[in-house]
Design a protein around this nucleic acid. Structure first.
Ligand SMILES: [Zn+2]
Ligand SMILES: [Zn+2]
Ligand SMILES: [Zn+2]
Ligand SMILES: [Zn+2]
Lengths: 165, 165
DNA sequence: CTGGTTACGTTATAATATAACATTATGTCG
DNA sequence: CGACATAATGTTATATTATAACGTAACCAG
């Protein structure tokens, strides 16, 4: 649990974000090599755009970013959605359902059951990994076979409470 | 907790659903009277459509249902979305973020922090009320002020595991 | 190099949601 | 009652998010 709190702090505080990006990208490369997957240019571009932001981005934000970067190209939605599909399936990013947005995972490739704390002021998102034992136990009692969980907590982070008023 | 399991069972099993609907509708009426709110025809229509279904419905499903019922009228999306906004604000319904859909609340007007078990076979949804103490404690340690939580567990219910194979 | 497969590109369109403004119903007070 | 303020509904247009369908290019095993 102290590990979780650490990683949450990172998202909500100043840190060497360049280093974050580099480390997470090379982690993704390693995972793809292991799994014999192709981290193609497009996929890498989309992942990089998400790595640069600790905030979740919509598919069309990513699209705009791609089109800005490569002036001349006119990239269309399916390209972005397909890259996102790949990155989601391999556990490099998460989808934030309550925002129709996507964010890079802090432990790429783990296919983790993540929980998110989402600040509605600064829009930053902390990813925790602490699964809800009580809820899962209850699902089990009901004979409900869990596939996938979405846990998204919206509120105001400590920083924004100080600064924002 | 045994209460929660009971209510979850109701959603996933055969029961007197007509009675469900009647009771939840009159509960909503009572709450509106208490709060001096107007449960207008449109709002009641939308609530009724959701009460009839233990499954979540999209806004456009509700729209289609309204237009089917009142042939001649040509109701437009904003009407539905405004009724949904009212019903959400007063705690008569919930939004299922991972489905862009809406479902009636099993304890209308309580503004509860609900958790959902969503069967991906039969599409039924059980609403639990069991808040995740561990997660909230962790948010607290981080100084994160929680506003709203989204907890949506997808899987296969006990019934569908038996029948579906 | 050939055929099978995977990924990418392109066009069109579906599904979900809201902005902006006009109209009607409801309640209040003189 | 009648004039006003407010809340709710209706209408039109459009924004935002996502996918279907089909063609082309890259990659790889034999
Ligand atoms: Zn993750
Ligand atoms: Zn913040
Ligand atoms: Zn509820
Ligand atoms: Zn089921």
């Amino acid at each position: 649990m102290s590990r979780n709190i650490k990683s949450a702090n990172i998202a909500f505080r100043k840190h060497d974000h360049r280093r974050c990006q580099r480390e997470l990208l090379s982690a993704a490369r390693r995972v793809c090599e292991l799994r014999k997957l192709r981290l193609t240019t497009r996929r890498r571009q989309v992942l990089e755009i998400l790595l640069i932001s600790h905030q979740p981005l919509g598919a069309y934000d990513i699209l705009a970013e791609l089109n800005r970067a490569a002036s001349g190209e006119r990239i269309a939605p399916p390209i972005v959605y397909r890259a996102l599909e790949f990155l989601l399936a391999e556990g490099f990013i998460h989808r934030i359902e309550s925002r129709n947005a996507f964010i890079s995972c802090v432990h790429p490739g783990h296919l983790c059951a993540a929980q998110f704390l989402i600040c509605r002021d600064c829009e930053r998102v902390a990813e925790l990994e602490n699964s809800d034992a009580a809820l899962l136990a209850q699902a089990d009692v009901l004979g409900f076979a869990v596939d996938h969980s979405v846990v998204e907590i919206t509120g105001v982070c400590a920083e924004c409470q100080k600064h924002g008023g």
